[in-house]
Design a protein around this nucleic acid. Structure first.
Lengths: 348, 348
DNA sequence: CTGTTAGCGCGTTCAC
DNA sequence: GTGAACGCGCTAACAG
């Protein structure tokens, strides 16, 4: 191998010339080695070696072939958030599984929440897109749609022309809400943010402003139905809206609720991360779970089993895989399943 | 927007023709809007809209420009492993931080451990590579080097022509080994696998076969120095080699050790994940930490603080960022720092 | 088995 | 401010 690792680009044509063969013979040497005589192939490889040819240029190949063999993944307003949320990481693992099987790459598109997100999406060399759940008004959705490539949205919103992979959040919320608040006198809910401004607030069911995150909206509707079915007016449910899906924030807000004059005796959270924070706050406040406070989570993460959390089980990994299949142009798989897991954090 | 979302590809030339302008005017409309009259621009955009033009093709652009604005990341024999190891995820977050800042994408190259890994790397349309720590004999290294693109290896091995980002594992192992085994009579070590075959075994310092993972090798050397400095012959150290970096496996193997005739009274592990498994095994066996068994981890992950683990702190996130900078062609940052964190899992 | 032709879709020339 | 050529590096589709 030539040691002069220079910046100069060596082309297949140069290799062919040096080897004394046509460009196509050189190309075949890399792509269809069986169609080339041993003699020609070794001449080509020798020439490549001498010239320091790095192999066919992937961009040129993609252009010629008309496909990049890569899927794009858009993970929400700030990219590194994707790596901080364990459920998002599971989802990515599911995407990775399918990409590995199909030999395609997985490009994470660098999103910042700023105006140039649209350009970053338009400039991504990918065959299809996967969008992690976002708000109804996220410009990313239109940008992805404008590429006219196959795309799947996880969670929501549903967008014409793109696949949607999501459990029935409303039904699941109804089911776990019923368990969480059974027999409760002062029910509370720790919620994901309602919209992109991610404003935190402690409010109640009657005072909820517009909710633009569809997953959050559907869950709130389900919880409302659960409350009303249990004879609890929605406005009597205390709702702590968090800025992020985060154990520490949930712990702080739960501590506040538990220290109030009318502390909740049943707290439903929208994720196991949040619920784990709530459990810590409850313990710190000297309450027993579930007798003083019933607590529920969502996702059936590892922490849920550890803490004995009643939760909604769903496989983010499978959902990531489904999204990837859609982005590859496969037909959409059926609606993903969920189930209620009853453990010891709720009253029997 | 035209609704007939067909599969047919619309080119810039067609848009230009329909708009009654030259191709370059159409191109400028997308790339240098200031160099085009308002009138021409709106004609172009209208034509694009009518034709359903999706915008300039990213592959063609990359080819023309000579760069893809994307970094490739190679995460070890099996891709989804990357998403199961929390430290690997931190590392990816660091890469993502830099990619976001520089507006470049991040392509995870789908590796399976099979022979076609090399082809997958050669065919990745990226400007540079980042390789997660691997073995000396991993063919991926040669494949990355053959692309002649800037590349950084995290952890090791060191390869000519590629940057290396790694703490001094030997020194760190020496330091934490000294604390772990201080005053111990029956020291043990829970180790990462030694080579790509990932064979699990319980052995001792004298019976170690060839170690081809350089990070593991360097740590073993450091631990050996720590043992000998404490007057413990290396062959007296029980070494439990695990197949993977995994809490559950470490728990099983630690349980075995603790149930043996001569149970260890000090166990050093190579990660906090492993150490957390060891702590669970110790508790299950009715031992107190650190009195009956001293335990150390590595990484200073969240779980280390929770369990009070003495550990080696390092920032995988910063190291990911450093790798990304190198892959972008920036000069290599200085050697990353580590420090010893003493908590309550070791004897004072 | 090997060579020739003809672009893939775009953007950097350089003229006008 | 706009237009006409040319080629980025490669490979499908044909000959031969």
């Amino acid at each position: 191998m030539e040691a002069s690792g220079g910046a100069k680009r060596v082309t297949l044509a140069q290799v062919a010339e040096r080897a004394g063969v046509s460009v196509m013979t050189a190309s075949y040497t890399y792509n269809r080695p069986d169609r080339v005589s041993d003699q020609a192939r070794s001449k080509v490889l020798a020439a490549a070696d001498e010239l320091g040819y790095a192999g066919p240029d992937p961009s040129a190949r993609s252009l010629r072939r008309g496909s990049t063999r890569t899927l794009g993944v858009v993970m929400g307003e700030h990219l590194s958030y994707a790596f901080e949320d364990p459920e998002a990481v599971s989802f990515l693992a599911g995407v990775a599984d399918v990409c590995t099987d199909h030999g395609c790459g997985m490009t994470i598109v660098p999103i910042t929440g700023a105006a140039d997100d649209v350009a970053r999406i338009a400039d991504a060399a990918v065959d299809g897109f996967i969008v992690w759940t976002t708000s109804d008004d996220d410009p990313v959705l239109a940008a992805v749609r404008a590429t006219r490539r196959p795309a799947a949205v996880h969670g929501g919103p549903a967008v014409g022309g793109m696949g949607l992979v999501s459990i029935d959040n409303r039904a699941a919320a109804r089911a776990i809400g019923a368990v969480a608040w059974a027999g409760a006198e002062r029910p509370a809910l720790v919620s994901f943010p309602l919209s992109r401004d991610r404003r935190a607030a402690i409010t109640n069911g009657a005072a909820l402003p517009g909710v633009t995150f569809p997953v959050t909206r559907e869950r709130l509707e389900g919880y409302r139905q659960a409350a009303e079915a249990a004879g609890i007016p929605w406005q009597d449910v205390t709702i702590a809206v968090c800025a992020r899906n985060d154990a520490a924030e949930a712990e702080r807000v739960a501590a506040t609720l538990l220290a109030s004059a009318e502390p909740p005796d049943a707290i439903a959270a929208m994720s196991d991360q949040q619920a784990s924070g709530v459990v810590r706050a409850a313990r710190a406040a000297g309450r027993t779970v579930p007798d003083d406070v019933a607590i529920t989570g969502w996702d059936d993460a590892a922490v849920a089993a550890r803490l004995g959390l009643t939760t909604v089980a769903q496989s983010l990994r499978d959902q990531g895989a489904s999204c990837a299949l859609i982005a590859l142009g496969r037909p959409a798989p059926r609606t993903p399943a969920w189930s209620l897991i009853r453990r010891t954090s709720t009253r029997p």
